[in-house]
Design a protein around this nucleic acid. Structure first.
Length: 195
DNA sequence: CTGTAGATGAACT
DNA sequence: GTTCATCTACAGA
């Protein structure tokens, strides 16, 4: 397909790639999803795994762009990222949520029969499970598996201005889309004090 | 919809 | 020993 994104698309700043990924179709293991929410991570982001340099777990993140970085978190969930930036940049885009547009029965089988269609890929770990991604898919080449979809609007981050790199993670989503994850911060997260 | 609680592996202090 | 880029389950509005 001529609509497939090439490696050059990913080999740029993750903050630039992330919003362009919204609305794109990712196909793997018999399931296709339309991305509705993503989050950019870079080496200069304190919240990023790559902040303190490569580890055995994050080595894929420091490799060439266009590959899949799958990690295990909270002892029970997988999350999937698309590696971005130049080789060794330590940047990636976390796939936070998506809409299953093809292979829904397959995704339903992986997620469970009692899971609502809307929740099949609404959430990082949910999306990874719906796609059938696990440890074996860490480091997989995703070039050719991602196609540009219809252009969509995007909304960015908790903060309006993304001019400063000191901001937290860069998060992008499609405004008003039903398939955007509703989750907010952790309940334990310190609330901003105000006088 | 909101809020609370718990599970559980890997990285970090 | 503590934190974490999470999800499911339950209670209440």
């Amino acid at each position: 397909m001529s609509r497939a994104l090439d490696r050059g698309f990913f080999a740029r700043d993750s903050v630039v790639v992330a919003p362009e990924l919204l609305g794109c179709i990712v196909t793997a293991n018999g399931v296709s999803v339309r991305l509705t929410e993503v989050e950019a991570y870079r080496e200069d982001d304190p919240a990023s795994h790559s902040f303190r340099g490569p580890t055995a777990r994050t080595k894929v993140m420091f490799g060439p762009a266009g590959f899949l970085y799958v990690y295990f978190t909270y002892g029970m969930h997988f999350c999937a990222n698309l590696v971005c930036g130049a080789d060794g940049a330590g940047a990636a885009v976390l796939l936070r949520a998506g809409e299953v547009v093809d292979g829904a029965p397959v995704a339903q089988g992986r997620r469970g029969e009692n899971v609502a269609e809307r929740d099949l890929a609404r959430g990082p770990a949910r999306l990874a499970q719906a796609m059938g991604w696990g440890r074996d898919d860490d480091g997989r080449d995703m070039v050719g598996a991602v196609s540009r979809g219809e252009p969509v609007a995007s909304l960015a981050g908790p903060r309006t201005g993304i001019t400063k790199a000191a901001d937290t993670a860069w998060r992008f989503w499609i405004p008003g889309d039903r398939y955007v994850s509703p989750y907010k911060r952790h309940p334990k997260a310190p609330a901003a004090e105000e006088d």
